[in-house]
Every structure is written in structure tokens, then in C-alpha cells.
Design a binder for these strands. Structure first.
Lengths: 204, 204
DNA sequence: CCAAGAATTGAACTGTTATTCAGTTTATGC
DNA sequence: GCATAAACTGAATAACAGTTCAATTCTTGG
């Protein structure tokens, strides 16, 4: 005979799955700990190591889920912010601004996205590369628009978009690694000015 | 009684040490292989695993040596190229150009410098971060010079230098990861233009 | 050529981590 | 309350990497 799960059990299991994901994110984000072992994650989630495997097929599946979650969270935030503006320059600026703000508010998110976890497998790392690439494609669309509108000169927009994202990535990464720059408002302005000039925005 | 090594033995040992370093670099640079184990490195060098420990105290020491070698090779190349120019813009451009050329000619070098090896320990990874940082400091010096000479406007040169290096890093990384852009001459020009505009170089 | 020192070998040791599974606890439906 | 299913447990397993060391091979200097 097959038993059906009650609502209560379903809720409890959903809750447990969330707990595991939360524990994984916390441990990944932690400064010191290098131990992203299943044992450590299970312990943090308050379950036995074996139980983990009732919720995820293996470690890689967990990591993939973590990354997908973070990614969609970031995308949601960016899209929401972009919707507030019509002007493409403003969209581009808003995208970066909200990205940076999010990273600063949730340093752990930044750490997971931008730092490279030596102990995590290659497949996981490849996912990050994909995300970086998606961000570049978003930037490229905006830059293509700007070229089409003759607001900036003709250029290799793929390269420009890559440069654009790369400059932001590096500054944010520097901030995560050594806490520099201290004054982010000023740094953000410098960075934005740098890239706007870089794209060839006309003075108005 | 203590025996003295003959010239021949000393030469052979130096040669063996070099072989180990070469094997390590090859294996690190390889596309597919995830296996950067001492066993694999020793095998490639044609020695037993135990022999490795007669030449390096441990794996970390080997990695440090590999990184230091690569680093000094890159620095040597950059310095040599910079010496050819007097104008600071030219020095800055030449530094980047020779960096990119070197990475393109020796893709394995680029891979070791710019990709992130998940299986390699944190200490090793930190070394790369240091190198990236040194490159930023070099760029900063040039940019400081340019500001002092009133060739570009006042700016947060640390942020600009970080953005500068970051944009190059990202484009080179993209090339390593997915082979884009195809036409490097054009891409390099775009990138250089982008950054020169970004720095605020006056039209002449 | 030979005895002692030096170098080399690779199997064994150690530590670590993902994964499994036999035994235990909890939930279900009558 | 009970029989059975489902969930949970955590010690055991397996696989793998860095390191060691007793045994072996090569080198030295007389």
C-alpha cells in the first residue's frame, strides 16, 4: 500500500529543502570557512548527512540549484530596476547601480558570484561564467540600442559590452578582496563616467 | 665520508627540476585534464611520485614556483616593451598590447593566469589576485602620470586603473573561454579606444 | 672493482570527502 | 492500536590526493 503525504509533511519537507539551501548559501558566503562539505552543510541545516541525499541527488545538484537561485534573484532585481527608466543610458546605469548596490548589501551574494571558490568543481564554475556572459549580453543590447539611436558612435558592441562589464566586475572584486575603494558613491561615479566616456557618449 | 656531486649529476638534477616545472605548467594549461595531482605531474616528468619530494618540499611550493616564474616572465616582457616608448599613453598602450599578444601566443599562460582552477588551493589562487593587483598598480602609475601632465582630467586613478585592467581581463577571458572575439586586431583597437576615451584623453 | 653514500622508487600510509545503506524513528490509514 | 510505508540517521564505504619511507638502483672516490 502507498501512503499519501499530508499537507504538514509536504510543508515540512519544503521547509527542510529550503533550510539546506540556506545552509549551503551561508557556508559558501562565510569568510573563513573553506569547508563546504555535505557534512558541514547538513549539520548547519540540522539534519544527518544521509538526509541530504533525500533532498538532492548529489552535491553538484545542490550547487546548481544555489547558483540558479542567486542568478534569478539578481535578474529579477535588475529587471525591476530597469523598468523604471525609458532612456537607454539610464537603463544601463540603473542596471549597474542596482547590481553594485545588491552586491554591497549582500556581500555574501557578491562573494559567491564574483570570487572563485577553489574547492568547488569545474561545472559549478562554468555556471558563473555563463552568468557573467549573460550580463554582458544585457549590456550589449543596451549598447546596440544606443548605437542605433546615434547617441554613441559605431563600435564593436560585443567588445564594448565585455569591457563595460569587466570594468565593473574588477572594481567590485577589488572591493570584496581588499575592501577598496572605501567611498563607493565616488567610486561608482568614477566608474560610470569612465564607461560613459568609454562608450563615447556625447556631452550635452 | 661525504661524496661530492659531479657536474653531470648537478646538471641532471637541474634538468629534472625543470622537467617537473614544465610538466606542471603543461598539465595546468591543458584543456580537459582536471588532474593536477602530484602523481600525474610526476608521471609526465618521467619520475616516481616520491622523487618529486626530493625537488620540492610539497605541492604548494611547486605551485608557488610556477606562479612566480610565469609572473616574472610576464613582467620581463612588459618592462622590455615599455622601455621602447617615452610617451605615457604609448607606454600604457604598449603594456596592454604586449600582455594581450603574449596571452594569445601562449594560450596556456593565459589560461593559468586568467582562468580559475577550481581544484587548486586557496593560497595559490590568492597569488593570482596579487598579480592582477600588481598589474592594476602599474596602470595606476601611468594614469597618475597622465593626470600630472594634464593630459587627462582629474579622477580617482585607483578606480580608473582597476576599470582599465578589468576591461582587458574580461575581453581576454572571453577569448579564452569561447574564442570570441575572432578578429583580435579590431577588438584590441576597440578596447584601447574604449579605455582611452574612458580615461578622458583629449582629442588631438 | 667495491663499499658507502646519494638518489630514486612506488607501494603504503594518512587524511579527507562524497555517497551508501542497514537499522531506527516517524507518519499513514484503517 | 497496529501494520506498513516513508523518512531519517550516522557509521561504514569507496575513491582519491598528498606525503612518507623501506627497499632498490645508481654514483662516488679510492
Amino acid at each position: 500500500m502507498v501512503y499519501n503525504k499530508t499537507e504538514k509533511v509536504i510543508a515540512k519537507q519544503q521547509n527542510l529543502r529550503d533550510k539546506i539551501l540556506k545552509a549551503a548559501r551561508e557556508i559558501l558566503a562565510e569568510e573563513e570557512s573553506e569547508k563546504t562539505s555535505i557534512k558541514a552543510i547538513a549539520k548547519r541545516a540540522g539534519i544527518a548527512t544521509g538526509t541530504f541525499y533525500l533532498y538532492f541527488t548529489n552535491k553538484e545538484a545542490l550547487m546548481e540549484t544555489v547558483v540558479k537561485e542567486l542568478y534569478s534573484e539578481l535578474l529579477y532585481i535588475i529587471k525591476k530596476e530597469r523598468a523604471k527608466y525609458n532612456n537607454v543610458f539610464d537603463k544601463l546605469q540603473a542596471s549597474m547601480e542596482i547590481c553594485v548596490q545588491t552586491f554591497m548589501k549582500e556581500k555574501h551574494l557578491a562573494k559567491i558570484f564574483l570570487e572563485h571558490f577553489p574547492e568547488i568543481n569545474t561545472a559549478f564554475h562554468a555556471k558563473f561564467t555563463d552568468i557573467e556572459n549573460d550580463l554582458i549580453q544585457f549590456a550589449k543590447q543596451d549598447i546596440d540600442d544606443l548605437v542605433a539611436q546615434h547617441l554613441i558612435p559605431q563600435q564593436d558592441t560585443q567588445v564594448s559590452a565585455t569591457a563595460f562589464v569587466g570594468s565593473f566586475r574588477q572594481v567590485i572584486f577589488s572591493w570584496i578582496s581588499h575592501g577598496e575603494p572605501k567611498d563607493w558613491d565616488q567610486a561608482f561615479n568614477t566608474l560610470l563616467e569612465y564607461n560613459m566616456r568609454g562608450l563615447g557618449r556625447q556631452k550635452n
